[in-house]
Design a protein around this nucleic acid. Sequence first.
DNA 1: ATTTCCACCTTGACGATGTCAAGTTCCGGC
DNA 2: GCCGGAACTTGACATCGTCAAGGTGGAAAT
Lengths: 192, 192
Amino acid sequence: MPTKANKSHHHGNLKTVLVDAGLQLLAEGGLAALTLRKCAARAGVSHAAPAHHFDGLKGLRTAIATAGFKAFAKAMIEQRDSAADSPHARLAAIGRGYLSFSENNEALATLMFMTKETFTDDPDYQLAGEAAYQVLADACTPFKSGAAGAKGTEVLVWSLVQGYASLARSGQIDPHETPYAEILPLLALQLR
Amino acid sequence: MPTKANKSHHHGNLKTVLVDAGLQLLAEGGLAALTLRKCAARAGVSHAAPAHHFDGLKGLRTAIATAGFKAFAKAMIEQRDSAADSPHARLAAIGRGYLSFSENNEALATLMFMTKETFTDDPDYQLAGEAAYQVLADACTPFKSGAAGAKGTEVLVWSLVQGYASLARSGQIDPHETPYAEILPLLALQLR
DNA sequence: ATTTCCACCTTGACGATGTCAAGTTCCGGC
DNA sequence: GCCGGAACTTGACATCGTCAAGGTGGAAAT
């Protein structure tokens, strides 16, 4: 007996299915594999079906990056919550979450931090990016601010881990030769 | 009177002209504007002419990224050479060179640090990336190594500036609100 | 219960793109 | 002068993004 999902013209959950299809295609074939038509095919709909849910390929990419930021924040929080109960340990754990997310989702992480013109103006995307940042910003609170203030400490840590992840993804550094766990302590962050 | 360059079937300098065309297209229209056919059109040749010089679009991208790394190294060296004669000043200057290159060439910088699968195996590309890294590595030499050794200091600085540039390009941080000049000193690098 | 409206699709078309094959032109070596 | 191969051109095909027109299904209004 056909269900609503099996009928045409009303999938019921197509937006989410298309984003999931996009995440799979990125994981399997990298950035070049992410196309509107392939997402539609994998979702079992026609090539023009996504148009009702997204503002073109750019809109779909934005939705995928939004999902990416949510998964990213989740990965950092999970590591943080299972770390030892000290600010240094939590910050290090967040870094591990960041880097394992980046390592396990190379194409998605690359997409997430592309230039602004890659994405549409989407409040969900903005919020998801800010929420991910906030996980890291909160973890910096227990540390003394340097001359640049609290914001400076946040930017210092965020730049460090983001840069390390980016260089590892592009093959410019070897994470086994120079593990992040050895780099973060070099900041010599002091507690308040 | 026709010169060699005006005749068909033997441009004479097409490889370089195509790479330059690609650099222009990136500057004008971002990553999405970089296509083989547009580069060929701008070079004044047919759409299939690039095939003799590059291994497809991926090969052309690799050549463009190689040119990018060379310009990038040059920007850092120029800043370094006009800085005050101290290791801290030189390192800060290199950072400025890095960031101004990134700000002035957003699409190119984004291309340069994409995942490995974006590029072909090309020794020139490898060398250019290593040479750019070496400018920064050399600038780190005068500083004490921390627990992670000399390599750790290099990776620390490289990650910081790379991450800062990447976050600025993607709009996640505001370089005017939190200038790099205020972040680098937070590393509190000590001279040997 | 029926009608209406609109969300949500499908089909088809077009221009742009990457890549490949076949053919043509030009240059350098013999 | 001839030959071989580098370096192009032309043409074709599959895939892509986007747009237009049309069809289907569900919910609200009557």
